[in-house]
Simulated scan of single mutants.
Amino acid sequence: MARNLLKNPSGEEQLEFWELTENGGSQWKVEDMPGDCGYDFCHDGVTKYFATSFELCLKRQVIDLLEEGFSFEQLDAQPPVTVEDWYSGRKDCGCTYRMTVCLLDENHEVIQEFKPDPVTLDPDCDNCFWKQVSHTFSNYGPGMRYISFEHGGQDTKFWDGWFGVRVTGSSVIVEV
């Protein structure tokens, strides 16, 4: 059965297992759903999210696929890799969301990258409810050994505190 390879995808363990690659403003924070001026999440079981600040906040996990129990043969067969993430804004402040996921070889060189354009949410004209982004990698060639998953963002009004994008429910699944 496929399993989520990301550890602590929704902040149950605060920021454990995440490398903070950008930690600006008031820095990252874990909050309880739905949070101040927030929206309820659409799936049961997710009770926390990561909140960003007024300067860019990005966090990353690099998954070692061999350490996770995959064999060279399984990985070189180019199994589908599905990544998902959920993000939302607040009812009172705009925000931007960013995501970059890379399939990496043994030297951490990029084999294939998924990097959608940043999304800006404005509560004055957008629905800032929880939104899902999803992508499946396929036909990327042999040699994948690591997956780098990075996401985050910031608010658009530069308010002191945690008024930026909220992220939760992230997943990386390798279908072997």
Rank of each mutant, 00 (worst) to 15 (best):
P9S: 07
K7F: 10
K59G: 00
C37Q: 13
N4M: 06
C102S: 11
G164I: 06
F149I: 08
A51R: 00
G11V: 03
D64Q: 12
C93T: 12
V62I: 15
P9K: 02
R98Q: 15
Q14V: 11
F114D: 10
W28E: 07
G94K: 02
P116V: 09
F41Q: 02
P79N: 05
T120E: 14
G169T: 02
E84R: 14
G169Q: 06
D40W: 12
E106L: 09
S10G: 08
P9G: 02
D36V: 07
E109N: 15
D122T: 12
G25H: 03
A51S: 14
I147W: 03
Y87R: 07
C95F: 01
F137A: 02
E150W: 07
T156W: 05
C42F: 14
W162E: 06
C128D: 02
L58Y: 05
D160I: 12
D76V: 10
G38R: 03
W18L: 10
A77C: 10
S138N: 13
V176T: 15
V167F: 03
Y49I: 07
E84N: 14
N4H: 09
S171P: 01
P142N: 06
K48E: 10
E13N: 11
V101R: 02
L15N: 04
T136R: 13
V110Y: 07
R90M: 05
C37R: 09
F70C: 03
D44R: 08
M33F: 05
R90F: 04
E150T: 12
K48A: 00
G45E: 09
D44V: 02
T168N: 07
D32Y: 04
N4R: 06
V83P: 01
F114G: 00
P142H: 10
L15P: 02
I111P: 00
K115P: 00
K157E: 14
P34Q: 13
V81A: 02
L20W: 11
D40F: 05
S171L: 00
S134C: 13
C93F: 02
D105N: 14
E13A: 10
C125I: 15
V30P: 00
S26G: 02
E73T: 12
D85R: 08
Q132C: 11
Y97A: 01
G161N: 09
P118N: 03
L65R: 04
D117P: 02
K115E: 13
N4Q: 05
V81I: 15
K131T: 10
Y97R: 01
F114E: 14
V133Y: 06
I111Q: 04
Q132F: 01
D76R: 13
I173D: 01
G141A: 07
R145D: 11
N127K: 12
P118K: 08
C93R: 07
F17T: 13
